[in-house]
């Protein structure tokens, strides 16, 4: 609202009058506006401190010796920064975190590829090809998005257990290769925003549907596909429930589950646990940082559509 007020009071031809220094009501308005601005920044800044401070505390704790964690008042910058907490924690876990990272990276990369390939194919089918029952099937897909996964995961778990694939990565990977409704829906929206005239032109030149998909639509929707890749990365990296259920051998664990295990085993060493927490968050933060512009834009686009 202040935006509008600014417009009303500062960008009007009234300003020259004020320069003559006669109109006190305008001066009062100006003072009010400055006070408003100061309040605004004060609220924004204190909110930002509240939001950021747990992360600062996490990094600070990860660099402390064990003895300083309980210290009151909080020691924000430890006198001797304990970088070795990171190395110690990384290697004290059995197997070391390198294994968990390799596992998580493997699963995450496989799932991103699978999800992108399958969702874009399915979304293309729904967005571009007119086939029997298409709209009904699409509605069905939207309806299944409301189904909580708890309803189906017990039979799915029993199925993987029966064919002996529990404690392998397959139960975590194969379902992702079969798409999910949310990503199909999002990609379909993007595909539909591209004119079908391109398809028609390509078809006159004798192109089949797959050529139109791979040569026209995919290159044109790269930013949207990037957004989905990033969301898939964050989701897979943070996923806790499925690895918790399917993986039980220590050497197979993902970072999320291993981190939890590490914390229960090392409950006396809070700095080490915080160090591994920081390390677990770094990939997500890094991807967020690199893709910030696109990521935020993408959410904004999908948000408006929703």
């Amino acid at each position: 609202m202040t935006v509008r007020e600014e417009k009303a009071y500062s960008s009007t031809p009234l300003q020259p009058i004020m320069r003559q220094g006669t109109d006190w009501s305008l001066v009062i308005l100006k003072v009010q506006r400055i006070i408003g601005r100061i309040l605004l920044y004060a609220v924004l800044a204190s909110g930002a401190v509240l939001f950021a401070i747990p992360l600062v505390w996490m990094v600070s704790t990860s660099l402390k010796p064990d003895g300083l964690v309980n210290n009151m008042p909080i020691v924000w910058i430890p006198p001797e920064i304990q970088w070795h907490n990171y190395v110690d924690a990384w290697n004290t876990s059995v197997p070391p975190f390198t294994t968990f990272y390799a596992n998580t990276i493997f699963i995450t990369v496989m799932n991103i590829i699978g999800l992108l390939v399958s969702s874009s194919l399915v979304a293309f089918g729904f967005a571009r090809i007119r086939f029997w029952g298409r709209d009904g099937i699409f509605l069905l897909m939207i309806a299944t998005m409301m189904l909580p996964k708890q309803v189906t995961f017990i039979p799915i778990y029993l199925f993987w257990a029966k064919i002996g694939l529990v404690n392998t990565f397959w139960p975590l990977i194969i379902p992702e290769w079969l798409t999910n409704g949310y990503n199909v829906f999002l990609l379909r929206q993007f595909f539909m925003s591209i004119s079908t005239e391109l398809d028609d032109a390509a078809r006159i030149d004798g192109a089949g549907w797959f050529t139109i998909y791979s040569r026209i639509l995919i290159p044109l929707t790269k930013p949207a596909i990037g957004v989905i890749a990033i969301q898939a990365f964050a989701w897979n990296w943070n996923n806790y429930f499925d690895p918790l259920i399917y993986l039980n051998e220590p050497s197979k664990l993902t970072v999320a589950v291993a981190l939890r295990l590490f914390q229960t085993q090392q409950s006396a060493h809070i700095p080490e646990t915080m160090a591994m927490t920081v390390v677990a968050l770094i990939p997500v933060l890094l991807v967020f940082y690199i893709a910030q512009a696109r990521f935020i834009q993408g959410i904004v686009i999908s948000g408006v559509k929703g």
Binding site: G125, F126, R130, M141, V184, G208
Partner: peptide, 11 residues
């Protein structure tokens, strides 16, 4: 029809 179902077959 065939192409459409092939494309959405993962789902």
């Amino acid at each position: 029809n065939i192409a459409g179902f092939l494309f959405i077959s993962p789902w």
